[in-house]
Design a protein around this nucleic acid. Structure first.
Length: 476
RNA sequence: GGUGGGUUGGCCGAGAGGCGAGGCAACGGACUGCAAAUCCGUCUACACGGGUUCAAAUCCCGUACCCACCUCCA
């Protein structure tokens, strides 16, 4: 089976046929670095990270671009509210975003272009659009440049909408637009805005519109035609529709496939910066490990709406614990040699990144491995573990991946702490072993209870007792 | 008004005409001094009303409810 992907533009699952054999160019809309990232933002990062990993695993040489929008109205507003330059605010938020991605083992893209670093490319693209008659400078002297929606008959094709059916934005500030649906390619500088937030252009100082950023950056790093463009569903319109219109009107074929990940909502409402109900990554990470959050996100299909809850995350983490438990029992994930990927897993992934079915295959292998372990067939169990580790690795969930520890600044201390606890717990377990040998079970159980009260679970195995941090996780 | 999506067992969450996804929880059994962990088993669901079909959770028609986008948004 070959990879098949659901293309939003055609609304069907299609075979993935790259423009150039063996290579895949992917552009994903990153974030506007204006506030702390929340679970929803990171879902997109994780979903497309899985796509990237699967493409790589399938043998593609992948160029993966994820941009950063580091200048926009909200950044300017928030920076001003906090009394610091907009670029300082953007830089701080960018760092938060990087931490969040690292905490969830989202691999860095091949390039991560920032909008402010590509203004000349944007100006050039706008000039091309004006030359071709698809854009015009506002006649009201604002310095704005708009895309002429009526000049591009295909406008609306990505989201199958007709211009005449679209609601004209209420705030459609006419500002010299020929049609209220025309959108800004370039925004002339407003007197109240800081001088540093504007760049010179043929139309006077100003800054780029949001949509043109992605068109220019995708073109620069992936060429005028590329394979996959991704982002969240909300971006379909207007952002992606506009990107496609601009790029095609300028003569570039642009993306062959459009992939959109669905939302994560909380209490039925979408997580949004403006609603302020965000579940920021740092706050979730106080209660769950990054690998658990990633597993929770990967276990749902990327096109399915997820209703976030800590209860569901808790259940998911419990399930992941069973996978980790198996790897531990077999000698520790790091000691397991990665094996071949089960065909059923590959088939699931090839089917529009069917991670739920893939995870089911993962659990089948874990159960079989545990069964073999119980039957005393350690060699066969290790083989299953090898498959398990490979599957986890493809999903970015390999517990032995150093990314999980280096992401934390406290990793070194945590290791030291584990060693210290190990020595202490082992001392107690030795006492318990003596008590058990003497059939003094009351004393043995008392010791186990003391250990458990400290949050450490003990399990007896044929090779002696093992301890682990119990599910102290959160009681919600 | 236009566009797109959803409603699945106690819960989470797949599937998309026949074949019990998977996970969590619960219960029973095996194992254990007792636990824990693990394995085996039980729990046979697809919003509602029609229709098509030998066969429908899946296709068609209708109804209800929910959500997203059309404005900054992953």
């Amino acid at each position: 089976m070959t990879l098949r992907l659901y293309d939003t533009a055609t609304r069907e699952v299609r075979d993935f046929v790259p423009l150039e054999e063996g290579r895949a160019g992917v552009y994903v809309c990153g974030l506007t670095v204006q506030s702390e990232p929340h679970v929803g933002h990171v879902r997109s990062g994780v979903n497309f990270d899985v796509l990237q990993r699967w493409l790589r695993h399938s043998g593609y040489e992948v160029t993966f671009i994820r941009n950063v929008t580091d200048i926009d109205d909200k950044i300017l507003a928030k920076a001003e509210a906090q009394g610091r330059p907009w670029y300082a605010h953007a830089a701080v938020m960018k760092r938060e975003l990087d931490r969040a991605y690292a905490a969830l083992n989202v691999a860095p893209p091949t390039y991560e272009p920032a909008a402010t670093g590509h203004v000349p490319e944007m100006v050039e693209l706008i000039e091309t659009l004006i030359e071709k008659g698809h854009a015009y400078a506002a006649e009201d002297g604002s310095g704005d440049v708009y895309f002429d929606v009526r000049s591009w008959p295909a406008y609306g094709e990505l989201t199958s909408q007709r211009i005449d059916d679209m609601e004209a934005a209420e705030d459609a500030d006419p500002r010299g637009k020929r049609d209220p649906r025309d959108f800004a390619l370039w925004k002339g500088r407003k007197p109240a805005e800081p001088a540093t937030a504007s760049w010179p252009s043929p139309w006077g100082r100003g800054r780029p519109g949001w949509h043109i950023e992605c068109s220019a950056m995708a073109g620069k790093y992936l060429g005028s035609a590329f394979d996959i463009h991704g982002g969240g569903v909300d971006l379909r319109f207007p952002h992606h529709e506009n990107e496609q219109a601009q790029s095609r009107a300028a003569g570039h074929p642009f993306a062959s496939y459009w992939l959109h990940n669905a939302w994560i909502t909380t209490a039925g409402e979408k997580m949004s910066k403006s609603l302020g109900n965000s579940l920021t990554i740092p706050s979730v990470l106080e209660r769950f490990r990054g690998i658990e959050l990633r597993f929770y996100l990967v276990a749902a299909h990327y096109r399915s709406h997820v209703e976030f809850s800590f209860e569901a995350l808790e259940e998911s983490a419990a399930g992941f614990g069973r996978i980790e438990g198996f790897l531990d029992r077999v000698g520790g994930a790091a000691e397991v040699e990665k094996g071949a990927l089960p065909q059923a897993f590959a088939d699931a992934m090839d089917d529009d990144l069917g991670t739920p079915a893939a995870v089911a295959v993962l659990y089948d292998a874990v159960r079989e491995g545990n069964r073999l372990l119980q039957a005393g067939d350690a060699a066969a169990a290790r083989e299953q573990a090898g498959a398990v580790r490979t599957m986890l690795d493809v999903l970015g969930l390999d517990p032995a991946d150093p990314a999980w520890s280096t992401g934390s600044r406290d990793a070194g201390r945590a290791d030291a702490l584990t060693t210290a606890v190990d020595v202490l717990v082992r001392g107690l377990l030795d006492q318990r072993a003596e008590a058990r040998a003497a059939k003094d079970f009351a004393a043995a159980d008392a010791i186990r209870d003391r250990i458990k009260a400290a949050g450490v679970e003990v399990e007896d195995t044929p090779d002696g007792p093992r301890w682990s941090l119990g599910n102290t996780g959160s009681t919600v």
